[in-house]
């Protein structure tokens, strides 16, 4: 590859980047094959340092831009941000928005299911799903299974830190958490029951 005045390393898939060694690790956008690290994306080469048990390891990455847009697929055990689309008796259908920190592309939305018994860790049969979620809520959940051909991903909010992050009341106004099982509309003050996630409030705008 010729490098020019910009002195940037541009690669396309299949280009050899480095010979593999103990001090180098293939990161995102690269793969290792028979002693060399190849690129698997068309983009720029980034090298990052990483500390791992008293030694620094270079991480070779190839990215389209600084802020990488990785193609991610929800994986089992990962925490996802989802929006509840519909509520049933036994489960709630959700559409995944983000996987951990990467937003999913808007075109292909993954669908997921949140079953009634996966909402809480305790008292599983006494849960009323309508009092935990409502369509339009944004929730944090954990993917627990891929599901089979008929069903989609299965989610679970059976942890303190998982649950509803932001919700809209029936009247259409935003709601803020009151306690762990209730949210209250900001304008009307009407309370609605939700399973609230135990996450800190950090945003001044929405919550």
């Amino acid at each position: 590859m010729t490098s020019d005045s910009h002195a940037v390393k541009i690669v396309i898939p299949g280009d050899v980047l480095y010979p593999s060694s103990e001090l180098r690790r293939p990161g995102k956008g690269t793969y290792e094959l028979h002693g060399s690290i190849y690129s698997s994306l068309a983009g720029f080469v980034f090298v990052k340092e990483e500390k791992q048990r008293e030694r620094t390891i270079e991480v070779i990455e190839v990215r389209r831009s600084e802020v990488g847009h990785d193609h991610v697929v929800p994986y089992i055990g990962g925490v996802v941000t989802a929006r509840v689309t519909s509520i049933g008796q036994r489960f709630a259908k959700c559409a995944l928005i983000c996987v951990e920190e990467t937003p999913l592309p808007g075109g292909a939305e993954f669908g997921a299911l949140l079953r009634r018994e996966d909402i809480q860790a305790t008292d599983k049969d006494k849960i009323d799903l309508a009092r935990c979620f409502s369509p339009g809520d944004v929730i944090l959940a954990r993917v627990i299974s891929f599901g089979d051909n008929q069903t989609s991903f299965l989610l679970s909010t059976a942890e303190d830190e998982l649950g509803v992050v932001s919700a809209v009341a029936e009247s259409g106004e935003r709601m803020l958490p009151v306690d762990w099982v209730n949210m209250q509309g900001v304008k009307t003050g009407v309370k609605e029951p939700r399973k609230v996630a135990r996450v800190p409030k950090m945003n001044q705008l929405i919550g």
């Binding site: 925490v79 941000t81 983000c98 951990e100 920190e101 944004v138 944090l140 303190d160 830190e161 998982l162 992050v165 932001s166 996630a197 135990r198 996450v199 800190p200 409030k201 950090m202 945003n203 705008l205 929405i206």
Partner: peptide, 17 residues
């Protein structure tokens, strides 16, 4: 950008706990 995504809040909460 200053909006903290739910996931970020979640990770902070996790660290806190």
């Amino acid at each position: 950008e200053e909006w903290a995504t739910p996931y970020e809040r979640y990770s902070i909460a996790l660290q806190e706990s």
